[in-house]
């Protein structure tokens, strides 16, 4: 905590700052959160941001919502922790609900069906690219990639419930990781 109270963003600033983050990103807004917090408004330094991001990425759940809670709490306590994620989500939720209304009304038209088919195909490709990128970022690939394979078999082929798969997977992969960490 380096910032004095005069440089702490107000509740208003938190709401609108995170609104701008929520509305600027497509398919993940975390990079935009970094830009807003570190570069544009300079509420925190890059090192600070990375430190705060640690817990947000460690815990499950939408990382950027977690980040909004952390930043909101840091500057305005409980009210900030409520207002920042609200700012992040309100605009996008309104837009997506508007789209949902349009979908209800016109979703049956062949044009809309075609449009959504095309977007789904692109979305599928973006997911493959994301998986590839995440897979390449993994350290000690020969040791950990098999767990990726097992996850795909359990989830995509066998359609086992994800909570069970994740608990079992975390015990196995986390156990292996724990063991390798001890060997250093």
């Amino acid at each position: 905590m380096t910032s004095g109270s005069e440089s702490s963003p107000s509740l208003n600033a938190l709401f609108w700052g995170f609104s701008s983050v929520g509305l600027s990103g497509f398919g993940g807004v975390l990079p935009f959160a970094r830009r807003m917090l570190v570069e544009e408004r300079q509420w925190m330094t890059a090192a600070d941001f990375n430190a705060q991001l640690g817990i947000c990425q460690f815990l499950p759940g939408p990382n950027v919502v977690n980040l909004a809670v952390v930043v909101g709490k840091r500057y305005q306590g409980l009210p900030g922790a409520i207002v920042a994620p609200l700012g992040l989500l309100t605009g996008p939720v309104l837009i997506v609900l508007l789209l949902a209304l349009l979908y209800d009304r016109y979703g049956g038209l062949p044009q809309a069906q075609g449009l959504l088919r095309g977007i789904a195909a692109v979305g599928c490709g973006l997911l493959f690219a994301m998986a590839w990128r995440m897979g390449m970022a993994i350290r000690q690939k020969p040791l950990f990639w098999p767990f990726t394979g097992l996850t795909v078999i359990a989830i995509a082929l066998l359609r086992w419930p994800m909570p069970l798969v994740m608990i079992a997977g975390l015990l196995l992969a986390g156990g292996v990781a724990y063991w390798t960490l001890g060997r250093k």
């Binding site: 460690f58 599928c124 998986a131 950990f144």
Partner: peptide
């Protein structure tokens, strides 16, 4: 243990995203 969870969860997350793509 914290590092172990972070390391261990990464390959699972890759599998989940890949599964999501095949499922779509």
């Amino acid at each position: 243990w914290q590092q172990a969870i972070s390391l261990g969860v990464a390959p699972l997350a890759v599998g989940l995203v890949f599964s999501g793509a095949t499922l779509i």
